[in-house]
Computed example of a mutant assay.
Amino acid sequence: MAVAASLVLTGIAVAYTVRAADERRPTPGKATGAAFDLTAGRLVFRDMRPGRGRDAVAAVPLARTRDGRTSADLRCVRFYAAAGTGVCLNTAPGPVPRTYAAVLDRNLREVRRVALPGVPSRARVSASGRMISWTVFVQGDSYSDGSFSTRTGVLDTRTGRTVTSLEGIALTLDGRRHRSPDVNFWGVTFAADDDLFYATVSTGGRTYLVEGSFTRWTARTLRENAECPSLSPDGRRLVFKKRVSRDPADPWRLYALDLRTLRETPLAEPHSVDDQAAWLDARTVMYARPRESGGSDVWAVPADGSGPPRLLVPDAASPSALGRAKGF
């Protein structure tokens, strides 16, 4: 089984290398020091403009997101930051590419690196900057058709505890302890106590929203058909993507979930969004939305179901709000 898994991963890695060359995937770099840091009041993101600067970490003021952007000498496939801590998922080129999560300080200096076994997919940092999570594809490279396998890990930067896979957690599904070789986790989001988390789990051909505890190493399902959750700053709501169609070109819509009542509200974004949304402020979520012509932009929409969505940052992906904007 280990040999088969290795062959599968090697095949994915080679395919990813070819695609990376075609798309000018990022190469490891170092931050520009004083010229760029994770200062509050900024919106940081992955620059998606064509050319040599593509995939660089960039920033604009939260209050003026259409102003000129500042870029760092650091490129990432996925990026997220909070409270002066960043995480950059990247792939180093080579005969067999090496994927890793780089933990970054306020000045984007790498302070730790964790080797990862697949293609970068999701990344998160808790609001305090303490907890880091990542998801990679280890088989397949899309959530849309269900033929994929993921590996999700968590790092506690304070204690150094690193969990390379959530698949060993004690999972309760519909009130019963669940054990199955097909369990996959992805899309972690942390609560303010740096222990409680929410994530997606897939098993038996279905997806579920789970609530878990990192210290107790337990998780339980809350509801079905909720992927890539993102917890609001007040901890009362989750925004997630919900599968509404089997059409691979248009499978998802964004919804908000009240964690007290478990009542869901559809958001006003009419397009399919394959992203783990992030909160711009207490009332607004943001997310990357691809363009038909290629590339992507970051959009924002109210989290209460009103609308309409608005373009927040063109030619961008992987947004993180450092501090709070005034509202939508």
Rank of each mutant, 00 (worst) to 15 (best):
T164N: 07
V210W: 01
P95W: 05
A13T: 12
G33Y: 05
G305Q: 13
R151S: 14
F36H: 06
R161D: 15
N107G: 12
S133H: 07
T189Q: 15
P308H: 11
D156S: 09
P248A: 13
T221V: 03
D194N: 07
R206N: 11
T221H: 02
D145P: 00
T39I: 02
A316D: 06
S121R: 14
V301I: 10
F214D: 11
R66H: 15
G323Y: 07
R69V: 01
R54E: 05
S144C: 05
R130G: 08
D195V: 01
F240H: 15
D234I: 03
R206I: 00
E224M: 07
S213Y: 10
A316E: 04
R237Q: 14
Y198N: 05
S213A: 12
T99G: 09
R24T: 03
R283E: 14
V57D: 04
D141N: 13
E110K: 13
M48N: 05
K242W: 01
L166T: 01
L254E: 09
R253G: 12
G160R: 06
S306L: 14
G295S: 12
A303L: 10
G118A: 02
K326V: 04
D258V: 01
R177F: 09
E292D: 12
P314K: 14
M48S: 05
A59E: 11
A123G: 11
L280G: 10
A219K: 08
R54F: 02
T221W: 00
F79M: 07
V87L: 07
P319D: 12
L196F: 01
A21W: 03
P314N: 09
T85S: 05
L116M: 11
L311N: 13
D234C: 02
V14L: 15
G29W: 00
G327F: 00
L209E: 08
A199Q: 01
P251W: 02
N225Q: 10
D105P: 02
T172E: 13
